[in-house]
Design a protein around this nucleic acid. Structure first.
Length: 476
RNA sequence: GGCGGGGUAGCCAAGUGGUAAGGUCGCGGUCUGCAAAACCGCUAUUCGCGGGUUCGAUUCCCGCCCCCGCCUCCA
């Protein structure tokens, strides 16, 4: 099966064909920097990371943009409460966001435009002016500028919503009488007292951009009028992405996005995360409980992106076990396997056994079927381990498997961190234990093993002697 | 009410019109001085429920039940 993705717009699996192969333009909705991002946010970013990495493995050259929303109600409120400037308020969260991306081994996008950058504000204003010129937007009595959805018949197509049947949910501000239609959304929000010193001048007076227009402006500025892929969480489908289509196509007259891809929500203990339920976790919260970024990455990537993922700490334990097989072992199941493969590849063994296939990649081609792909990985590990146990894996095959791992790991990014060097006192204890074992002094040997354990090191005896590894804790 | 996603072993989770990947947990075994790792074996006659189509359905169709999410600025 060739590469296929599920397109939210058509609600169907479609063969992937970018406009200008091998180039792929990809826009992903980024964070609003008013706090540290939570694990639900990262589920989306990891899905996008998997998507980018798989595309790259398949030979595409991905140009990816992720916006940073650094002005909105929440950032303004936060800055006001902290009595600091908007920029001073958002800056630490921006920095924290990039640190978190590194923790999770998420590849950097090519650009991270910010909504308050003058260049993009200018473009937003330009787009809004064009929409007004085309009668697709109007300035209301409250001085804000709104998009006129009645003039854009396509509005609602992405979400498959019949706008007449929308229920009021109480989340619509009742004071927005000024709008012609309840569904009209703000392109430019007129300044009010709550905004304090946050605001920019525009042809419609002082104010700030609406959330949706920022994405339309930055995506088209950096990627052109037509994008290959646009991603986000399902909650962005409506109204955010619907609005983006209306604004962008309203200005350019061209089809905005070819493939819309949305990931399902992450649940915690089967409920949506919320602070009041006490099931709200930032990435930092989970790391603070002793899990490594790699373990969190695995836990968030292992379930297909269109299925809701239920996050639990039992699931975190399971992820740890899947990677390491033994919770206190630092050497992972995968590393152990790689080490054996390296030894085998350096040997003179010439016996032929089947080498790797491209099953992993083929399974991912089917709308990023990660569970199937991981199944291929674990089966491969078991089969090659079995062959090595039986002394039946040749050096050439071992080399091929190592190469295979390098390839799939460019997508998974699940390799362990570098092995740390043994401190001298650990080295000394290990040497003493080696000598005790040589003398078959098992009591002494076990005492020394306990001593090493107590110092945070794990000892395993293999036919090649003892192996000392650091116990798993937070990633160094 | 509308729009989505899902109900597969204790738990997590793929998948196919021909009779259930993988992970985790548990038990037994090979190996080991003991452990660990690795490997082997066992653990769903069955895929929410009821009909239908079919030689055959978990997979297709119809109806129903349950869970979760979205419905105007939450990834």
């Amino acid at each position: 099966m060739a590469l296929h993705f599920f397109n939210t717009y058509s609600r169907a699996l479609e063969k992937f064909a970018p406009r200008h192969p091998p180039n792929v333009s990809m826009y992903t909705c980024g964070p609003t920097v008013y706090s540290n991002a939570h694990i639900g946010n990262f589920r989306a970013y990891i899905f996008e990371d998997l998507l980018q990495r798989h595309l790259e493995m398949r030979g595409f050259k991905v140009h990816r943009v992720m916006n940073i929303t650094d002005v909105d109600d929440k950032t303004i409120r936060g800055a006001r409460e902290a009595k600091i400037s908007l920029n001073a308020f958002t800056e630490p969260f921006k920095r924290g966001f990039f640190e978190d991306l590194d923790t999770l081994r998420i590849k950097r996008a090519d650009e991270y435009p910010g909504a308050t950058e003058p260049h993009y504000l200018a473009r937003m204003i330009e787009m809004i002016a064009e929409l007004i010129k085309r009668d697709l937007a109007y300035q209301a009595e409250d001085k804000s500028v709104y998009f006129r959805i009645n003039k854009f018949p396509e509005y609602g197509k992405l979400a498959h919503l019949n706008l007449e049947e929308l229920r009021p949910t109480g989340r619509v501000r009742s004071d927005e009488y000024e709008k012609e239609n309840i569904g009209d959304f703000a392109l430019w929000k007129a300044w009010d007292e709550e905004d304090g010193d946050v605001g920019w001048d525009s042809p419609w007076g002082r104010g700030r951009p609406g959330w949706h227009i920022e994405c339309s402006a930055m995506s088209t500025a950096l990627l052109g009028d037509q994008l290959d892929i646009h991603c986000g969480g399902v909650d962005n489908i409506f109204p955010h992405h619907e609005a983006e289509i209306a604004q962008s196509e309203g200005v350019t007259g061209k089809k905005f996005v070819r493939y819309w891809m949305h990931c399902a929500h992450l649940l915690v203990d089967n409920q949506k995360m919320s602070k009041s339920l006490g099931n709200f976790y930032t990435l930092r919260d989970v790391i603070a409980k002793g899990y490594s970024g790699r373990e969190v990455r695995y836990a968030l990537v292992r379930v297909h992106y269109r299925v809701q993922l239920n996050f639990t700490f039992d699931g975190m334990e399971e992820s740890r076990q899947a990677l390491t097989r033994k919770s206190r072992q630092a050497l992972t199941r995968i590393d152990e396997w790689l080490e054996r493969l390296r030894e085998t590849s350096a040997s003179q063994k010439a016996r032929g056994t089947p080498g790797p296939t491209d099953d992993f990649q083929r399974v991912l081609d089917d709308d990023l079927n990660i569970s199937g792909a991981l199944g291929v990985l674990f089966e491969s590990i078991r089969e090659t381990n079995r062959a090595m146990d039986a002394n039946e894996l040749g050096a050439t095959a071992a080399k091929a498997w190592l190469q295979w791992w390098d390839e799939i790991n460019r997508v998974l990014a699940l390799d362990a961190v570098e092995t740390v060097a043994l401190p001298s006192e650990v080295e000394a204890l290990a040497e003493a234990r080696r000598l005790a074992r040589l003398a078959k002094n098992w009591q002494k040997s076990d005492e020394l093993r306990s001593e090493l354990n107590a110092r945070g090191w794990e000892v395993r005896d293999t036919k090649d002697g003892q192996k000392i590894t650091r116990r798993v804790g937070p990633e160094p």
